[in-house]
């Protein structure tokens, strides 16, 4: 096991940030922590990277206890905090050299690991980090976290505030790093990124709702979901919520995701109801379950 967390709890005064969290991440796995802001993801990361002490429970990272062997952990993990935390007034190259030095290594020594990412920012190596674009900052931060060849990589919301193209690229990079044998724990509030992980843990209000592969999590969803659309989405949502058999109603892009309480649900019946509410251009069709639907259902 690369990361093993058992019964971790952490509270800040009255706020319970984490409650009895347990999970395990296998070696070489890409594990995702999926949850909204304030779910406790960052607290968990800070505990695992030895920056924060848990109130209860134990955890090991790369075989080392987070409390007793914290020094060894610091040598063998890479951490990329959610907030960009490199020196903005140092250049790209200086930042990288600085972090290499703090780990007692050099850029050359582990260049093969970062090469693929670094070549993209190398043309700007003499530019100050503060002057880089969001996506470039991301790549630099990843390089700095990888420079000492960590066994485990912690990425706290690495794609928040990054454009869709850069996000896609970033996940491709993670996949390739995983192939090099690095265990990756990544957190994200974006449900679409969850599908790219090997396994995910859905987390909310400091509690883990479910842990499984993205495919299995979707499969466990108990109901058939329907995409419903009409000219006036707002009116549609209100009408669906008011419908006596409605189970769940969530806006989802241009559609509204609808599930019914009954197992023998007939879409024509619903259509008739909605038409009686003066809604026009109605479309009701079956759709596939996404992780977001599962999350909304579990978080209910």
């Amino acid at each position: 096991m690369s990361i093993s967390v058992s019964n971790i709890s952490k509270s800040y005064d009255a706020v319970k940030a984490l409650q009895d969290i347990s999970f395990e991440v296998k070696s070489g796995e890409l594990f995702g922590l999926i949850g909204p802001d304030g779910a406790g993801k960052t607290s968990l990361f800070r505990i695992l990277t030895t920056l924060l002490l848990a109130n209860e429970g134990t955890a090991t990272v790369a075989g080392f206890d987070v409390v007793k062997d914290y020094k060894k952990i610091r040598n063998s993990v890479g951490y990329m905090p959610g907030k960009f935390s490199l020196y903005q007034d140092l250049t790209v190259e200086e930042n990288l050299t600085f972090f290499a030095t703090t780990f007692g290594t050099t850029i050359q020594e582990n260049y093969d690991l970062i090469q693929e990412i670094y070549v993209q920012i190398e043309p700007f190596k003499n530019r100050r980090a503060g002057k880089l674009s969001g996506g470039m900052k991301q790549k630099l931060a990843l390089c700095c976290a990888l420079i000492h060849k960590p066994k485990v990589l912690f990425l706290d919301e690495p794609t928040t505030g990054v454009d869709p193209v850069s996000r896609k690229e970033f996940w491709e990079m993670l996949k390739r790093l995983q192939q090099k044998g690095i265990t990756i724990l990544v957190s994200t509030p974006y449900m679409d990124e969850a599908a790219l992980c090997d396994r995910i843990a859905l987390i909310q209000d400091g509690k883990i709702l479910q842990i499984d592969t993205p495919q299995a999590i979707v499969k466990h969803y108990p109901k058939q979901i329907y995409n419903v659309s009409a000219t006036n989405t707002y009116e549609l949502t209100n009408a669906l919520k008011a419908y006596e058999y409605s189970h769940s109603v969530y806006p989802f892009g241009e559609f509204v995701h609808y599930t019914d309480q009954r197992s023998d649900f007939n879409p024509t019946e619903l259509k008739a109801y909605l038409e009686s509410k003066n809604l026009s251009d109605l479309v009701i069709e079956k759709t596939k379950v996404t992780i977001e639907d599962t999350f909304m259902e579990l978080a209910k």
Binding site: T50, L51, K71, R74, N75, P81, K83, Q88, T102, G104
Partner: peptide, 12 residues
């Protein structure tokens, strides 16, 4: 500015 957090996880 948050750089201390990054420094703290290093073996410095």
């Amino acid at each position: 500015i948050g750089t201390l957090e990054q420094i703290n996880v290093t073996p410095i």
